[in-house]
């Protein structure tokens, strides 16, 4: 049985992974307020589920998986709409960046998660398959398709990060 995570240690872990959890949640629920709620739930899960924390990479993947699971079980009813803009929680410098983010959000949720884990967290296809509990071939084909869409949004859409 794992040793109970102490408050200080939990705090350290939460601070270290706060941005990562929030980014994944935001990619999924597309709403900053809900993403914050999910972040809080993941924090609570950390101390109630008590995962092993000695292996940093294991912990990181555990947090990613729990965050995605929380997002998947997050039920937004049809009349709940985005009521807060991403501007409240980002330092996106240009309106174009915001537009790009909003276009990225139009991609299927699964694609968004795979894009994020591949391009931002630099996981391999095999690692992503393990994290998301999917067949590596599935991840590979989704990534190929998602790359095309990402290229269209970022390159053909005229995004200029110069």
């Amino acid at each position: 049985m794992n040793q109970q995570i102490g408050t200080d240690e939990a705090e350290k872990i939460i601070r270290e992974y706060a941005d990562m959890i929030f980014r994944i949640a935001l990619h999924n629920v597309k709403n900053a307020a809900d993403a914050e709620d999910i972040f809080q739930e993941v924090c609570i899960a950390l101390i109630t589920k008590n995962p092993p924390v000695e292996n940093k990479e294991y912990l990181r993947r555990w947090l990613i998986r729990v965050t995605i699971n929380k997002c998947n079980s997050f039920h937004r009813l049809f009349w709940q709409k985005n009521t807060e803009s991403i501007e409240e929680h980002t330092e996106l410098e240009s309106p174009h960046q915001k537009e790009v983010m909003e276009e990225l959000w139009q991609l299927p949720k699964n694609d968004r998660n795979i894009i994020y884990l591949y391009y931002y967290e630099s996981y391999t296809i095999a690692e992503i398959a393990e994290i998301l509990k999917k067949n590596p071939n599935t991840v590979s084909s989704v990534l190929q398709r998602a790359r095309k869409k990402l290229r269209k949004i970022l390159l053909e859409g005229g995004y200029n990060n110069a």
């Binding site: 705090e11 939460i14 601070r15 706060a18 941005d19 959890i21 929030f22 980014r23 935001l26 914050e36 972040f39 809080q40 924090c43 991403i86 929680h89 980002t90 330092e91 996106l92 410098e93 960046q97 790009v100 983010m101 990225l104 894009i115 994020y116 391009y119 931002y120 990402l150 970022l154 390159l155 995004y159 990060n161």
Partner: peptide, 20 residues
């Protein structure tokens, strides 16, 4: 390009403190 955009998304200190 993608990384630059995602880099700018940060959880506010206020939200972190609330969760803590």
């Amino acid at each position: 390009m993608y990384t630059e955009i995602v880099d700018s998304i940060r959880l506010s200190d206020r939200a972190v403190e609330k969760a803590l």
